[in-house]
């Protein structure tokens, strides 16, 4: 089975908070017509964060949501090695990578892709070398 690859990858070039990061990514996705409402998706992501922390290790986080405002499911990788993201507060930062998972409500095939990606990540079979070139987040 082919391991699904991330669809998009960004690099953070200044110090951001979690909410700032979501806003910036959603703004870009809106420009690309991949979501229909920036505010709705940001709110969905923040709501999920309010339920429990999505950090999956000391250095990585996996924010995610499923929303009607998402027109196409996406696996997005954000490189924050140079500019760690203040996650819970200024002192608790995500220092390496954010995996942002956005899912369309009812596309089972795309949901499976996301699941396979997460499994590959968890079992260590995902190669970071496979990543496409990063787009700088303004």
């Amino acid at each position: 089975m082919m391991t699904p690859k991330p669809n998009m990858s960004f690099k953070v070039n200044n110090l951001l908070t979690k909410k700032d990061l979501f806003k910036k990514i959603c703004k870009r996705l809106r420009q690309l017509d991949l979501i229909s409402s920036e505010t709705q998706v940001v709110n969905e992501l923040m709501y999920r964060e309010s339920l429990s922390d999505t950090r999956i290790s000391e250095e990585c986080a996996m924010p995610h949501c499923q929303s009607e405002a998402i027109t196409d499911s996406k696996i997005i990788v954000v490189d924050c090695w140079d500019n760690p993201i203040g996650w819970e507060n200024k002192n608790e930062k995500v220092t390496k990578i954010v995996f942002l998972l956005l899912a369309v409500n009812d596309n089972e095939a795309r949901l499976k892709e996301i699941r396979d990606f997460v499994r590959a990540l968890a079992t260590g079979s995902f190669e970071f070398n496979d990543l496409a070139s990063f787009e700088m987040l303004d």
Binding site: I56, M62, H64, C65, Q66, A103, I114, R119, L121, T123
Partner: peptide, 14 residues
């Protein structure tokens, strides 16, 4: 988890 695709899938492997 909320979606069943993110942290839950990761949790399963762990």
């Amino acid at each position: 988890c909320t979606t069943g695709i993110g942290t839950a899938e990761l949790l399963r492997v762990k």
